[in-house]
């Protein structure tokens, strides 16, 4: 059931998830479109999340946005202007120091392009002290090589050490790539197109921002509502590989699915392997924290001898 609407107020807003884009020039959603978007969400009782860019929005935009309860995802450099927003950390450091007042804990998103992968553990460590929650999203997965996947495994191991130290000190920031799998007992995925849609500056609705930036067909419009066919293929029930998987924390990113396998419901090998590296890192971290409350109360994550659930499906061979 659709409950959320993400609004790309500025098309040049930095990515906060797996998708990427190279738009640098401000691409504001026309004010009239923003107003219709808010009305669309209001009529359907959808919770709003705004995604502004790096440039300060004109006051009339803020007036429309602030007129309704909402969340926001903003570049970390704008932390002061958006006191309750989720902050996106640019791994290249283009937004200055990651925001938030001293002593204040915020929710952070660390989006990590491939060329910064080797810095992941250090960046996670830097965020931990200021985060109530940290979501790490890898960019450029479509270009990942076997060496990159190996590096990710190393970075997870290092980062797990930092996280374990923080947890032992009694601070409990959630880190999606570790704690989500510990806490989940069933799939909890992104559910783009099912639970949330994205309104883009062109006035159209998309499954997620990635579909907008890649020029994919819209999922509907503010005038016609959702017109997306085969929406059932976005659900877990119609995803044969994912529905027999226990990497419950995996975003099951339908944007990457579509980009790498041409199907919304089929993840690539790279996605599955990366998610299982995280799953296994979470398992080892939970083992390490076994006697530390509240981890002592969490159910152990079982060991598995595969990294790609596709390999577990009989007759589905033909892997490189």
């Amino acid at each position: 059931m659709l409950t959320h609407l993400l609004v790309l107020v500025d098309g040049s807003a930095p990515s906060f998830c797996h998708y990427g884009h190279d738009r640098r020039i401000t691409e504001l959603m026309p004010l009239a479109v923003l107003e219709r978007t808010v009305a669309f969400a209001h009529d359907r009782r959808l919770a709003l999340t705004y995604v502004p860019g790096r440039e300060e929005l004109p006051p009339e935009y803020r007036a429309v946005m602030d007129n309704t309860a909402h969340a926001a995802i903003v570049p970390a450099g704008l932390a002061g202007r958006y006191p309750d927003a989720i902050l996106v950390v640019d791994a290249d450091g283009n937004d200055g120091s990651a925001g938030g007042a001293a002593g204040e804990r915020r929710q952070f998103i660390l989006r990590l392009p491939r060329h910064r992968l080797a810095a992941m553990a250090d960046l996670v460590r830097d965020c931990l002290g200021r985060a109530s929650r940290l979501n790490v999203y890898l960019g450029d997965i479509e270009r990942y090589t076997a060496a990159d996947i190996e590096e990710y495994g190393r970075q997870l191991e290092l980062a797990a050490g930092y996280v374990a130290a923080v947890y032992r000190q009694g601070s409990l920031p959630e880190v999606n790539i570790f704690s989500d799998r510990m806490l989940l007992s069933a799939m909890n995925n992104c559910d783009a197109g099912v639970v949330h849609l994205t309104a883009a500056p062109d006035g159209k609705l998309y499954i997620c921002p990635g579909f907008y930036y890649d020029g994919e067909q819209p999922a509907g419009s503010l005038e016609d509502g959702i017109t997306l066919a085969n929406r059932q293929l976005l659900t877990l029930a119609n995803a044969p590989i994912c529905s027999c998987c226990d990497a419950f924390h995996c975003k099951r990113c339908v944007y990457l699915n579509n980009k790498l396998t041409l199907e919304w419901n089929t993840p690539s090998r790279e996605q599955c392997v990366l998610a299982h590296l995280e799953r296994n890192a979470a398992r080892l971290l939970l083992d390490r924290l076994g006697s530390v409350p509240p981890f002592s109360r969490l159910r152990a994550i079982p060991a598995v001898d595969y990294l790609d659930p596709f390999d577990q499906i009989p007759t589905r061979r033909l892997q490189p």
Partner: peptide, 15 residues
């Protein structure tokens, strides 16, 4: 391209 072949090999009747 194993990724492009995956959807075919993962096909089930019910999906």
């Amino acid at each position: 391209n194993a990724n492009l072949l995956r959807p075919f090999l993962a096909l089930t009747r019910l999906a």
